[in-house]
């Protein structure tokens, strides 16, 4: 029983780290993806080519490698060392360790690349006629985008976005390659230190329950936007 409590409290701590990584990645990647998307769609060739190159690299190499590179390369190339939080508040300093920050940066950039392509698909799926109709009605380009196009785009990108977001919560496990103490890291510590394998499956249960909640949430969101039927 005591062991059970210990396993659950340690896995709980790991899950909090995983959730923080998940939430902060989304907060950073959703707007960053939009910026990348506009860069890719820009009519200014060097910018669009450059951002296409970035998206290619980010989508074309394993996330695990990117996490590794972002954490170790700056120090190895003598560029900079990831700053250590020093607020004196132990929980905060330990949670947002250099390892966590590096993983967060890697995740945010990687997911922004995927999001940018989803946004692009959504924006380009709106028929040209709508822009022309807006122009005829005397709306500016800005007005057409924010008042007519954007809401339809949001509705269209929700299914692919929910797919990516569900993948993200499981991808947080990759942070354990640089020893971020997230859920899988904690579960594996039970395996290496105590020779217990079942905590790993309990950890799987944590992900499963959370993905279940996300699925219900996105289902409701899709229903709510149903009145937009084209």
């Amino acid at each position: 029983m005591e062991l059970f409590i210990e396993v659950f409290s340690k896995l709980g701590n790991g899950f909090i780290i995983a959730l923080l990584l998940f939430a902060l990645t989304l907060i950073l990647a959703i707007p960053l993806g939009l910026v990348m998307c506009f860069c890719t769609m820009s009519k200014f060739k060097p910018l669009s080519l450059f951002s296409k190159l970035i998206v290619w690299v980010l989508r074309g190499t394993p996330l695990m490698l990117q996490v590794f590179a972002i954490f170790y390369l700056p120090g190895l190339l003598k560029l900079f060392v990831w700053p250590q939080m020093n607020t004196g508040w132990v929980w905060f300093d330990n949670t947002f360790s250099t390892r966590f920050i590096a993983a967060l940066v890697a995740f945010a950039i990687n997911y922004a690349a995927y999001f940018s392509e989803i946004y692009r698909g959504g924006i380009e799926s709106i028929p040209k006629g709508q822009y022309e109709a807006g122009q005829v009605l005397g709306l500016t380009k800005k007005q057409v985008f924010f008042k007519i196009v954007l809401l339809q785009v949001i509705k269209r990108i929700i299914p692919p976005m929910s797919n990516e977001i569900i993948t993200l919560i499981k991808d947080t496990a990759l942070a354990n390659t640089i020893a971020v103490y997230e859920l899988i890291f904690e579960a594996k510590e039970f395996m290496t230190v105590d020779g217990l394998i079942w905590p790993l499956f309990v950890a799987g249960g944590f992900y499963l329950v959370f993905v279940g909640l996300l699925t219900i949430l996105f289902g409701r969101l899709e229903k709510k936007l149903d009145y937009f039927k084209a």
Partner: peptide, 15 residues
């Protein structure tokens, strides 16, 4: 705690 595989990189990157 570090990953033993990464020990040289941990050291050389000043972690």
């Amino acid at each position: 705690i570090i990953k033993w595989d990464n020990k040289v990189a941990e050291l050389n990157s000043n972690q």
